[in-house]
């Protein structure tokens, strides 16, 4: 299993006190009585989880929501494909609104996708120990602008132009679980025009 991208140590931030997400990884949770698996862009990850469920004796219903064609799956898995991440997210929200306590939600996909889904999960009332998360694919971050409050998707560099107000934002290692985004603030707030060097950090 690949390391979740957020596990990386961030310079200057204590691993014990950082707000950046600590993802559980996508292990099968046998205590659940229903399993809702949402995978964007990595069908083999879904397949592995389905096999773990089958090996555990198929405890509870296993529903798989994907954004592409289904991989080969063990018997008993209910699988639905959506056209892209947005449709996938609304399909998940719809199912969560009808779900009962006992469900485990598994989310795998690019950084931005899993953070959006984690917000949907929390909004639906799921707790941390009911959601299993693994970032697979791009680590590009969602960045919430402290000035105009607009979220910029897909920040691969530590300096990103805000999609709302156009300011150059420093992508700061402060994460909001409510918004599912990192905080960004004007990079040249101290001295106008004096911008730090830009690095690619989350390809």
């Amino acid at each position: 299993m690949s390391q979740p991208s957020q596990a990386q140590v961030i310079e200057g931030v204590s691993p014990r006190h950082t707000s950046t997400p600590r993802d559980s990884g996508l292990a099968f949770a046998p205590a659940g009585v229903a399993h809702l698996v949402v995978v964007a862009g990595d069908a083999p990850a879904a397949e592995r989880l389905a096999r773990a469920w089958a090996q555990a004796g198929r405890p509870g219903a296993f529903t798989l929501l994907l954004d592409g064609p289904p991989p080969p799956l063990p018997d008993g898995v209910s699988c639905e494909s959506s056209a892209g991440p947005d449709a996938l997210e609304s399909a998940v929200r719809d199912r969560l609104s009808r779900a009962s306590v006992g469900l485990r939600l598994y989310v795998a996909g690019p950084e931005g996708f899993v953070r959006r889904l984690a917000v949907a999960a929390a909004t639906a009332g799921l707790a941390d120990d009911e959601v299993l998360v693994e970032v697979r694919g791009s680590g590009a971050r969602r960045v919430w602008c402290a000035h105009c409050k607009v979220v910029t998707e897909g920040a691969t560099h530590d300096l990103v132009p805000c999609a709302g107000c156009g300011r150059s934002l420093t992508v700061y290692h402060h994460f909001s679980r409510r918004l599912g985004a990192f905080m960004g603030f004007q990079a040249d707030a101290e001295v106008a025009g004096e911008l730090p060097e830009v690095h690619e950090r989350w390809p």
Partner: peptide, 9 residues
Amino acid sequence: RRHGWPSSR
């Protein structure tokens, strides 16, 4: 537990 409630609930 039988109905899948985590202990945090």
